[in-house]
Amino acid sequence: MDVLAHVSEVTGVPADLLGGYLSVLTAASSTGRLPDRDAIESLRVLGTGAAERGVPMRSLTDACLLACELTARTADAPVLGAVRRAVAAYYEGYEQAQLRAIREEDDARREFIDDLLQGRAERLAERAEHFGLRLAEAYVVAVARDVKPIGDGDPLIRRIEQALIARFGSHNILIAARDGLLVCVAPGSLTAATGEFTHHVRGGLDAGWRVGIGRPHRGPGGVVTSFREASDAIGLGDRLGLRPQVLKAADLLVFPVLLRDREAIEDLVQTVLDPLLNARGGPQPLMETLDAVFGAQGNQTAAARTLGISTRAVTYRLERIRRLTGFSPDDPTQRFTLETAVLGARLLGWPVDRDG
Score class of each variant (00 low, 15 high):
S189G: 15
S23T: 15
G195I: 04
G221K: 05
E288D: 15
G281P: 02
L240K: 04
V246I: 15
N172K: 13
G282N: 07
V201F: 09
A28C: 02
Y91S: 13
L60M: 15
S226K: 10
D291T: 10
G12P: 02
V201I: 14
I150P: 02
P275K: 01
L182Q: 07
D38M: 06
A63M: 08
T26Y: 05
R202D: 08
D114L: 11
A207W: 02
V269S: 08
F227I: 00
T271N: 03
T301H: 06
A101V: 05
D76S: 14
A51F: 09
D355W: 11
I113E: 03
I102A: 14
F168W: 09
L43F: 05
I175P: 01
P351T: 06
C68E: 13
V224P: 09
L60I: 12
G237R: 10
D238N: 08
S226F: 03
P283W: 08
G344A: 13
G356H: 11
L273K: 11
Q118K: 05
A15D: 13
P283Q: 09
A192Q: 14
L290A: 08
H171Q: 13
R110H: 11
A264I: 02
G212R: 08
G54P: 02
F336S: 10
L181H: 12
A63Y: 09
A264C: 01
L338D: 10
